[in-house]
Simulated assay, not measured.
Amino acid sequence: MRPKQPIGQLKALFAEQVYPDQLGRYSRHKLAELAATHGTPTLIIDRDVLTEQYQSLQAALPGVNMRYAIKALPHPAVIEHLHHLGCGFDLATSGEIQRLQQLGIDAKQTIHTHPIKKDAEIRQAIDFGCRLFVVDNSHELAKFVPHKDRVELLLRVNFRHQDAVVDLSRKFGCELTHIPNLIEQAQQAGIRIVGLSFHVGSQVPAPVAHVNAIEQCIDVFNSLPQVDWRVLDIGGGFPIAYNGPALDIVDFCAPIHAALQQVDPDIELLAEPGRFIAGPSAIQLLSVVGKAQRGAHTWYYLDDGVYGTFSGMLYDHARYPITPLAQHDMTQGLKPSVLAGPTCDSIDVIADDMVLPDLAVGDYLVATQVGAYTLASATDFNLYPKAKVLCLNGQLMAQ
């Protein structure tokens, strides 16, 4: 059994888990009303936060055209709202194309970024109207020979970053040394290569990876002047702070913006933000459905877990801030606690060493920063339904 911790130490641990700046824009009373009205688990998407995140990134990277990575949070209301703001879209699958078609959004500001595709997927994207695609090897390049008069291609380059939380270059991207051969293959086949793309990985802690990648892409442009270079896609990877103070995206992007000033002004600049736009836009309301004392820890069983909205803990290596919705006395009753999901699987644990006040069955909790790679990868394991989704404007939940 673990030794009991002094109350002062427990209070400090509890304070580390609660970040008012991420919940302070909302009235806890109104959130409780929403939970009572709609039930739990309920995911609430805030359109105002979507606007703030999109506009702040656009301001931090002026001259870069945003293509929202639909996979992060493909909810129709999110896509419609970003389209209204003027954002374009990063497509990767036929399902994402169908989602845009269902919403009446055309292909004018889209790019298909999946480096590996079936021919049927290529044809569907072309029929939709998408003309810009990404490849990273000779086999994929050859798939575009039948479509060469209707498409333009970017070569995705591999720039690995050891500190990225999710290393996307482990799976995709060609080496810099392969570019001349791919260019030659494309020219012989009559396929138009018009640019380069890269993705330094998800949640990179500093902009140095983007800067290095941009500089090396510029070197490629200069070393192969016979190519009609017209596009540079700098991918995503713009981080958010899951725990602690919000990230200053202007400071993060300043070196990236400076590096982009060295790119030929005739080259169009694209980016593929997903997490940065979607992550902070959603909070989740949950309920305690069960409670048990197991050794030194109080176990609280919630109505959503890692098979649902918290799936990002497994697939995305994220840990989401979560706290009781009601205000509690911080001077007494703090206990080492475990938050578990509702399924019958023992892996379904959200947090196994939290410090919480004494909660009752029926009490509400709220998780923040749950917009990206959460609902998108949620399952119905054990046939538990996925969280209900509300899409609101922030003032409806404010003081």
Rank of each mutant, 00 (worst) to 15 (best):
91 L>C: 08
93 T>W: 02
111 I>C: 04
65 N>M: 05
109 Q>C: 07
122 I>M: 09
58 Q>G: 02
82 L>W: 13
51 T>F: 11
96 E>M: 05
64 V>C: 02
101 Q>T: 14
73 L>H: 11
134 V>N: 04
62 P>Y: 09
86 G>D: 10
134 V>G: 02
48 D>N: 15
111 I>F: 00
52 E>A: 10
123 R>H: 04
115 P>N: 10
76 P>D: 07
80 E>H: 07
124 Q>H: 10
96 E>D: 08
80 E>D: 10
59 A>T: 13
84 H>R: 09
76 P>M: 08
106 D>L: 04
94 S>E: 13
110 T>M: 02
69 A>F: 04
132 L>R: 12
97 I>F: 05
108 K>S: 09
128 F>Q: 06
61 L>H: 13
56 S>Q: 13
108 K>L: 05
97 I>R: 06
109 Q>K: 13
131 R>L: 01
75 H>G: 01
69 A>P: 03
54 Y>T: 15
83 H>T: 08
54 Y>K: 14
78 V>A: 08
77 A>I: 03
130 C>Y: 14
134 V>R: 00
102 Q>D: 15
72 A>D: 04
66 M>F: 10
118 K>Q: 15
48 D>M: 11
115 P>E: 11
112 H>N: 09
50 L>N: 14
109 Q>M: 10
122 I>K: 07
87 C>A: 12
120 A>P: 01
96 E>C: 05
74 P>Y: 00
115 P>A: 10
64 V>S: 01
86 G>F: 06
102 Q>N: 15
54 Y>F: 15
91 L>T: 04
103 L>I: 05
121 E>A: 12
78 V>C: 10
132 L>C: 13
69 A>W: 04
107 A>E: 06
84 H>F: 01
131 R>C: 06
129 G>F: 06
63 G>S: 07
75 H>M: 01
82 L>G: 13
66 M>L: 12
58 Q>K: 11
84 H>Y: 03
86 G>S: 09
61 L>S: 12
132 L>A: 06
108 K>D: 07
47 R>G: 02
81 H>A: 04
93 T>Y: 03
81 H>F: 09
74 P>G: 02
73 L>Y: 02
89 F>V: 03
125 A>M: 00
121 E>S: 13
71 K>P: 11
101 Q>P: 09
100 L>Y: 13
67 R>T: 01
117 K>A: 12
128 F>P: 06
55 Q>K: 13
131 R>A: 07
52 E>V: 03
97 I>G: 05
